[in-house]
C-alpha cells in the first residue's frame, strides 16, 4: 500500500490548491504576530488591568508561549476549513476528472485505494499542523522570547512555568492533530458522494460552523447535545495547560488537572475518525463507479 500512498502524496503536493492552506496559515499567523509585536504591550496592559490592580506581575508576560496559545486558540477553529479544501477533494475531485474509474480499474483493491488516500490526507493534515507549529511556536519564541506563561480565564489565572511548557505544547499539537484529522475524515467521507469538490468542502465547513455555533450557545436544549458534537471535543487541547497544584498551592510539574477529561475527548475524536473512515471504506467497496 505504501507505493499507493506515495502516488497520492505526489498528486496532493503537485496540486496548486494544496499550498493555499500553507500560505493562509503563514499569513494569518504572521499578521497576528505583527499586530502583537507593534501593539502587544498596550493590549496586554489593558487586558491585565484587573490583575495588575491586585497583584504585581513581573517578567515578560507577552512571550512566545503566550503568543502560541493565542494563535492556537484563534486558528484551531479555522484551520479545519483549510483541511477540508484538500480532504473534500480526494475522492470527488477524482470522480470529476474521470480518473476515479481509471484508478479503480487498476489491479489494486478498493480498500487499499481508499486507505492510501486517507493516509495521504492525514500526512497533508499533519504537515499543515507542523507548519502551523513552526509559525505559532518557533517564530513566536524567536520574536517574543520566553518566560512563564499566564493564561487568563474568566475566573482564574493559570501560571505555567517555563520549564513545564514545551511538553504541554507537544501534547496540545498531538491533540490538535486528532481534532484536524476528525475534520479531514468527515470531509473525506462526504467526498464519496459528490462528483466535484465544492459540495463536500462546503458541507464540511457548514457542519463545523453549525456545530461550533451550537457549542457557543448556552441554552439547555443545546447543552444536552454538546457531548455528542465533535467540535466540543476539538478544544480539548487546552486541558494540557490546566496545571494541578498541591496542598501548599504549588504547581505540580508535569501534571494535568483533568487528564481523564482530555483523554475522553481524544477518545471521542478518535472514534469519529475510525467511524468516518470505516463508513467510507464500507461504502466505497460497494459503490458503483459511474462518474
Amino acid at each position: 500500500m505504501w507505493p499507493l500512498v506515495g502516488i497520492e502524496l505526489f498528486k496532493i503536493f503537485r496540486k496548486p490548491r494544496t499550498f493555499i492552506a500553507f500560505a493562509a496559515v503563514a499569513s494569518i499567523v504572521g499578521l497576528i504576530q505583527l499586530g502583537f509585536y507593534v501593539d502587544g504591550e498596550s493590549y496586554m496592559r489593558f487586558g491585565m488591568q484587573a490583575l495588575t490592580d491586585s497583584f504585581q506581575v513581573e517578567g515578560k508576560v507577552l512571550n512566545g508561549y503566550l503568543m502560541a496559545y493565542i494563535i492556537l486558540q484563534t486558528l484551531l477553529v479555522h484551520v479545519p476549513l483549510l483541511i477540508a479544501l484538500v480532504a473534500g477533494d480526494m475522492i470527488s475531485g477524482e470522480a470529476g476528472l474521470g480518473t476515479l474509474r481509471l484508478l479503480a480499474a487498476r489491479p489494486v483493491s478498493r480498500t487499499s485505494l481508499i486507505l492510501s488516500k486517507f493516509i495521504a490526507t492525514s500526512v497533508y493534515t499533519l504537515a499543515l499542523l507542523i507548519w502551523m507549529a513552526i509559525w505559532a511556536l518557533l517564530v513566536s519564541i524567536l520574536l517574543f522570547g520566553t518566560d512563564d506563561m499566564l493564561i487568563l480565564k474568566s475566573e482564574v489565572v493559570t501560571q505555567v512555568l517555563e520549564k513545564d511548557i514545551l511538553w504541554r505544547y507537544l501534547a496540545a499539537f498531538g491533540f490538535a492533530a486528532l481534532a484536524l484529522l476528525t475534520v479531514a475524515a468527515l470531509a473525506f467521507f462526504l467526498s464519496l458522494f459528490a462528483e466535484n469538490s465544492i459540495g463536500p468542502i462546503m458541507a464540511t465547513m457548514s457542519i463545523v460552523i453549525l456545530f461550533t455555533i451550537l457549542n457557543t450557545l448556552n441554552l439547555p436544549i443545546f447543552n444536552s447535545l454538546k457531548p455528542f458534537l465533535f467540535t466540543t471535543h476539538m478544544l480539548g487541547w487546552k486541558g494540557f495547560f490546566d496545571v494541578q497544584v498541591n496542598e501548599a498551592n504549588e504547581q505540580i510539574i508535569g501534571s494535568v488537572e483533568n487528564l481523564p477529561a482530555v483523554l475522553r475527548s481524544a477518545g471521542v475524536l478518535l472514534l469519529h475518525i475510525v467511524g468516518f473512515l470505516a463508513a467510507t471504506v464500507f461504502i466505497f467497496r460497494r459503490k458503483d463507479i459511474l462518474s
Binding site: 474521470g98 480518473t99 474509474r101 481509471l102
Partner: peptide
C-alpha cells in the same frame, strides 16, 4: 482499459 474520455490529471 480506457473508459470514455478521461481527463487524467491536468496539473501533471
Amino acid at each position: 482499459s480506457i473508459i470514455e474520455n478521461p481527463d487524467l490529471y491536468p496539473y501533471l
